[in-house]
Nucleic acid binder design. Structure first.
Length: 367
DNA sequence: TCTGGGGTCCTAGGACCC
DNA sequence: TCTGGGGTCCTAGGACCC
């Protein structure tokens, strides 16, 4: 099917070798490094548990905490019930970002092409540096060693012929793992895994697939692609390709940032308009500072509100001018939130976000 | 179990212009 | 007076990622 001999493109394409690097329980690992006294104890980074009455979730927990059943994303109140003796720390985001930068700088030096993925993961295309998987393994061990020596942190790495396989592979052996999936092994590797392991298959899609009798990646690969397209549209095609281990997406650096926002969940639900507006202004202030730091001008302001029953709305306005002024964020945000503030409705969360950035280049052409 | 906070991308409908 | 089709921008909501 892919014998485009005349064009020769596919035939001459060299097989890629892709790495996916995933730092092990990153936030708690950094905290353990900074505070050796926490090592060996269950450690949870996330919301304040407040003796089991706290709101919010677990961001990361170390392996000692996992022995008690604590998991990331779990309500912090539940974590407290499972392991009240754990050390609970707030999220020190600035510290993790700093360490993340240092790690990404190390990784970047080893890659032909590099792509950061979230705060603690990255894809590396190392095709030009390894002629086969044996050479890739040697390089990968060097990368792990360098991160351990320079940052005193471990990571788990997956190696495969594309991003999809590398990403799933990095999750197989943890912590401090190294998993290679060779081309001939791809189908056997993916076949028994639950569909949830695929990128972009979240809770909702997993449920939908389950009702269709699709549980494993193998089930999905064998399913009629026409029906998948009918049910999921373009995503259906993408899923069917992924299930067969096909992923041609390139490893590439992320482009410019598209939006900047802040959200906050109140300690207690409230309908106090003055309090809600003041909170919104404080968030606007942070968004404004961040947008100055990132040197972006924006046109669109969006507010978000969540009521106590979790019903969530967004409301946005695109201004007829480009701005970076705090007053414009505050004024627009107030205007947008007004109709959602009612004395009979308790509010759980508010947020504000700016977007529709105008790049420096585009601005020049407008002047 | 009772659900954070930072983001990105996609879809669908409607306004508006030519 | 009624009616096209294409393109672009805006808005709201939702799914997903870490």
């Amino acid at each position: 099917m892919e014998q485009q001999i005349g064009k020769g493109k596919l035939m001459s394409e060299k097989k890629r070798i892709i790495l996916h690097v995933d730092m092990d329980h990153f936030f708690t690992a950094v905290e353990e490094r900074e505070h050796p006294e926490y090592k060996g104890k269950p450690l949870v980074v996330g919301a304040d548990p407040k003796e089991g009455k706290g709101r919010g979730v677990v961001s990361t927990c170390n392996y000692e905490a996992r022995k008690f059943g604590v998991r990331s994303g779990m309500p912090i109140s539940r974590a407290w019930k499972l392991c009240p003796s754990a050390v609970y720390l707030p999220v020190n985001y600035e510290l993790y970002v700093k360490v993340s930068h240092e790690i990404m700088d190390i990784l970047r030096t080893h890659a032909d092409k590099f792509e950061q993925w979230g705060i603690d993961e990255a894809f590396l295309d190392i095709t030009s540096q390894a002629k086969d998987y044996a050479e890739a393994e040697v390089l990968t061990r060097e990368i792990k060693k360098e991160i351990l020596e320079k940052q005193k942190l471990t990571c788990s790495i997956g190696i495969g012929l594309n991003k999809l396989v590398a990403k799933i592979a990095s999750d197989i052996q943890k912590p401090d793992g190294l998993t290679i999936v060779r081309e001939a092994e791809v189908d056997r590797f993916l076949e028994p895994l639950p569909v949830r392991r695929l990128l972009w298959v979240g809770r909702k899609t997993e449920q939908k697939l389950k009702t269709m009798g699709i549980n494993t990646i193998g089930d999905l690969a064998r399913y009629d692609p026409a029906v998948l397209v009918e049910t999921f549209g373009v995503v259906g095609t993408q899923m069917h390709l992924m299930a067969r281990g096909i992923d041609r997406s390139e490893v590439e650096e992320r482009g410019e940032i598209k939006s900047i926002g802040r959200d906050v969940t109140f300690q207690e639900d409230t309908s106090n308009v003055e309090f809600i507006l003041n909170t919104l202004y404080a968030l606007a202030d942070e968004v404004h500072r961040d947008s100055l730091r990132q040197n972006v001008n924006f046109k669109t302001v969006t507010v978000r509100i969540r009521y106590e029953n979790f019903e969530t709305h967004t409301h946005s306005k695109t201004l007829p001018f480009i701005t970076n002024r705090l007053e414009d964020i505050k004024k627009t945000a107030k205007e947008l939130i007004q109709s959602y503030l009612r004395p009979d409705r308790n509010v759980r969360l508010v947020g504000v976000r700016v977007s529709n950035f105008i790049s420096a280049e585009k601005q020049k052409t407008l002047m």
